[in-house]
């Protein structure tokens, strides 16, 4: 039963990834004109360069053959060669990935702590001034895009107060954390709001449920009722939304990394778009999307533990 479920989910995940790979690969064919000149935009189309690109992409092969070659390459960790660095894409991306992961993890911690706390506090005080204050605060905070957050943080904490560096990602663990503090805050802002709001509404919905009234009527202390019956039942939607945020975080990191001069895959993506280095763009897009699909696949598999009704195929109510 369980194995079949996980098998089914896995199949669906692979199918989604397959469709994603089609989209990423064939997007190039949306651009009218000949593929060699597309890939060599902005570069001198020297005969050697043309030959190299044709060879690397197998551009003289049929399209489906090109796709299969590309896909088998990727499955073996070969994402092609970067046009700007003249290195393997996997090397270029691999060098920059750790910083971005660190940034995303730090932002994730901030989002988890602040989002959950604000949402829970607001829901437990629903309708009262504190709830209202948190809601207004969240609405305001939610309107601060990461690049605005970034420049405001730089202006105040880096330039005026001089507490944090304005640029770079530092060396070594502690220094990296120090360098990534402001970037992770800027990155987290909007997402704190999303998690805070979904936590609040999910909690409020559960607080209004009759089973909560029943638990209260049996003489359980309020804290116990909140923990065992309200928060426990509210986890599902919070987890779902958090899963959806993963890809957003990875992409938004490009803005934050650009603003703080952090050399992660986000700034690499922007740089590669700017320098028309399409193989790197393809690789990063694929990476981000795969991360999203896998994380959400995991959440999907976990669902029966979060909501036992979903295992039976029953609808949630």
């Amino acid at each position: 039963m369980l194995a079949r479920r996980i098998g089914g989910k896995l199949g669906s995940l692979v199918l989604t990834l397959f469709l994603v790979s089609l989209l990423v690969f064939f997007s190039r064919f949306l651009v009218p004109g000949d593929p060699v000149s597309f890939l060599l935009r902005g570069r001198k189309p020297s005969p050697e360069a043309i030959a190299a690109v044709t060879e690397q992409y197998g551009l003289n092969l049929p399209v489906w053959q090109q796709y299969i070659n590309w896909l088998t390459g990727i499955l073996q960790g070969d994402f092609g060669r970067s046009l700007q660095f003249r290195q393997d894409v996997s090397v270029v991306v691999g060098e920059r990935l750790p910083v971005t992961l660190m940034l995303v993890v730090m932002a994730g911690l901030i989002i988890g702590v602040l989002g959950l706390t604000s949402g829970i506090i607001a829901s437990l005080n629903r309708g009262r001034p504190l709830d209202r204050a948190i809601l207004i605060g969240l609405t305001m905070l939610g309107a601060i895009p990461s690049f605005v957050g970034a420049i405001v943080l730089i202006a105040i904490f880096a330039v005026q107060l001089g507490w944090f560096p304005t640029f770079g990602s530092g060396e070594g663990f502690a220094d990296t954390i120090y360098h990534l503090t402001l970037p992770s805050i800027a990155l987290a802002l909007v997402f704190v709001v999303l998690v805070g709001k979904v936590t609040r509404s999910s909690m409020v919905e559960q607080l209004g449920r009759e089973h909560v009234e029943v638990a209260t009527s049996r003489g359980l202390r309020r804290a116990v009722v909140i923990r065992r019956h309200v928060f426990r039942n509210a986890i599902g939607p919070i987890l779902t939304v958090s899963g959806l945020l993963v890809a957003g975080l990875l992409v938004a990191s490009s803005i934050v990394e650009a603003a703080f001069g952090v050399a992660g895959i986000g700034s690499l993506l922007v740089q590669s778009v700017d320098r028309l280095d399409f193989p790197v763009v393809q690789a990063i897009v694929l990476l981000v999307v795969t991360a999203f699909v896998v994380v959400n696949g995991i959440i999907d598999v976990l669902e029966p533990w979060i909501d036992p009704r979903s295992a039976a195929g029953g609808s949630a109510r």
Binding site: T16, V251, V270, V285, V293
Partner: peptide
């Protein structure tokens, strides 16, 4: 539904960046 699932996997900003990379 399957099509939406696939598009969901591409955050909007990423799609926009890809569009710039292409066009």
């Amino acid at each position: 539904g399957r099509l939406f699932d696939v598009i969901f996997a591409f955050p909007s900003l990423l799609i926009a960046i890809m569009a710039v990379a292409l066009f």
